[in-house]
């Protein structure tokens, strides 16, 4: 089951560049939350702070608190453990090119020392079914490389890989921006399905996508969270003038 995320006074830097300033918000459990805003507004940095990927860049720095469920991820846990609980799907599909489809899905478990073949088989099938890819690849699981699939299939493979470690939260950083409309709609259907089991945070440039999949939407601008509310309210009656300008296409 998913858990909620409580963010308090989050600040982030790349070198001297203050990319996130005083972010406070609550992301509800088992819902999809969309983050929108123009390029460079900090939304990607924000999701990368939620699983401590931000700090893998040597010049990056973070202050403030992020509570995932009951765990303050910056105080109580190691980054490696956090990333196992919080899965991530990236903008460009990034399957491991040397691994088969099966090994790609099982990689999170295998690389952490999990070996039980029968259980792995079950988890791989379940994860591929959950990411709506099973029927397309079930005959080539061990024969084909993850890199041999089409872009949309690769992205669903990456979702299956993230699901296989059984996370509580799924972070998606523009998961459909490199895909065609058919693949995009498959990913969106998937987000709809997955909400019941996971808390989903999705960064997107596509405002229709945010409106279609998310219950809550946050609007970022210049490193600040301008407005965070129900998706319906953001898109029909935003409280802030800047949000309205953005969603009506006056800038960005």
């Amino acid at each position: 089951m998913g858990v909620g995320i409580e963010v308090t006074n989050l600040n982030a830097w790349y070198g001297t560049n203050h990319t996130l300033q005083d972010i406070n918000l609550h992301i509800p459990a088992n819902h999809a939350t969309a983050l929108i805003g123009p390029s460079g507004c900090g939304k990607s940095t924000f999701v990368r702070c939620l699983n401590r990927m931000h700090e893998t860049n040597p010049i990056a720095r973070v202050t403030g608190g992020v509570k995932v469920g009951d765990v303050d991820i910056y105080a109580d846990a190691k980054p490696v453990e956090i990333r196992r609980r919080i899965g991530m799907v990236f903008q460009r599909p990034n399957p491991f090119p040397t691994m088969s489809i099966y090994d790609n899905v099982a990689s999170g478990l295998k690389l952490n020392g999990y070996r039980n073949r029968r259980v792995l088989d079950e988890i791989v099938e379940k994860s591929l079914r959950n990411s709506a890819l099973w029927d397309e690849v079930k005959d080539d699981l061990r024969k084909k490389s993850g890199a041999s699939l089409s872009g949309g299939q690769q992205q669903r493979l990456c979702i299956a890989r993230a699901l296989a470690v059984d996370p509580e939260v799924l972070l998606m950083d523009e998961p459909a921006s490199a895909l065609d409309p058919v693949s995009t709609s498959k990913i969106e259907d998937l987000i709809f399905e997955l909400k019941s089991q996971y808390t989903i945070v999705i960064v997107t440039h596509n405002m229709q996508q945010a409106a279609r999949v998310a219950e809550k939407t946050g609007f970022f601008l210049n490193g600040r969270l301008v407005e965070f509310d129900s998706t319906h309210k953001i898109f029909t009656n935003p409280s802030d003038k800047r949000t309205e300008d953005y969603i009506t296409g006056r800038f960005g």
């Binding site: 899965g87 990034n94 990689s107 890989r161």
Partner: peptide, 28 residues
């Protein structure tokens, strides 16, 4: 590619493990 390293780190794989099992294998 950096994306391949990030994928491994994003799965909660320790850095040394990611280097040996993913990066070196990809470059082999």
């Amino acid at each position: 590619p950096h994306a391949v390293r990030e994928a491994a780190l994003g799965l909660g794989v320790p850095n040394w493990r990611s280097v040996l099992s993913i990066t070196v294998k990809t470059a082999s």
